[in-house]
Design a protein around this nucleic acid. Sequence first.
DNA 1: CATCAGGTGAAGT
DNA 2: ACTTCACCTGAT
Length: 266
Amino acid sequence: MELKVKDDFDLEVIAESGQCFRFNKAENNTYRIVAFGRVLTIEKIKENTFKLDCSKDDCKKIWYPYFDMDTDYSAIRKKVGDNTFLKECADYSKGMRILRQDKWEMIISFIISQRKSIPAIKTSIERLSKICGDKIDDENHAFPTPIQILSVSPEKLASCGLGYRLDYIIKAAEMFYENPLLVEEMDKLDDEKLFEELKKLQGVGDKVASCVALFGYHRLNFFPKDVWINRALCEHFPDGYDMSLYAPYNGVVQQYIFFAYRSKNK
DNA sequence: CATCAGGTGAAGT
DNA sequence: ACTTCACCTGAT
């Protein structure tokens, strides 16, 4: 299946943006993605043209929405222009998109993410998927559902390197197992209410709730503040960052800053 | 081997 | 309301 993309779309930028943990570089110009119980291999074969190893039907129903192809990111990027630092970040991060990832997976993934490096987050998620997620092929397992997480012993769950986050994850799994419709019902809430509801979960504070809202619920105006963003803002906006500047796309700008600043300073 | 990692919740001012 | 602190453990 060949896909032509005229809009901003850079696999490396997205893979290194910190929004996804199962989106990894494989061979040259090729990335392997595990999402929605499927594995996708996507290769850039020439400018604006990508080869996806999936059916036309899956491409249309799963991956097109996953890559958020209906949003015009070049238009958003071009709005960022009146500040030199932000313009540099946006140019450097050209190709960024905010993926439409699975909401439940984002809740657990970002609970795991706290005080962990990205490689460590990935390791935990892979282990967790392996011990209780559906097998997809010899190397890949789907992200587990709440009942699948609850069906393994806490000791075995702990072996995924979850540490003190173990209880948070079990509590979230119980919550969403008891209310299977809750994940989608929360999507009906406005940004502020959604944020409040997410923060009611143990282990979900401002940062994790913002990430889940932005990357799971696709609320593009959330602006998660992690150590990298805080360093960047401290350095370039000592008098404070004006959140009204790029509303309702603060989250996209956050991704530009995160990717550019972290790439240059790590 | 010590330090740090895309924070959070609870305890203490 | 703000500040401080312990916390599991993999990666470097």
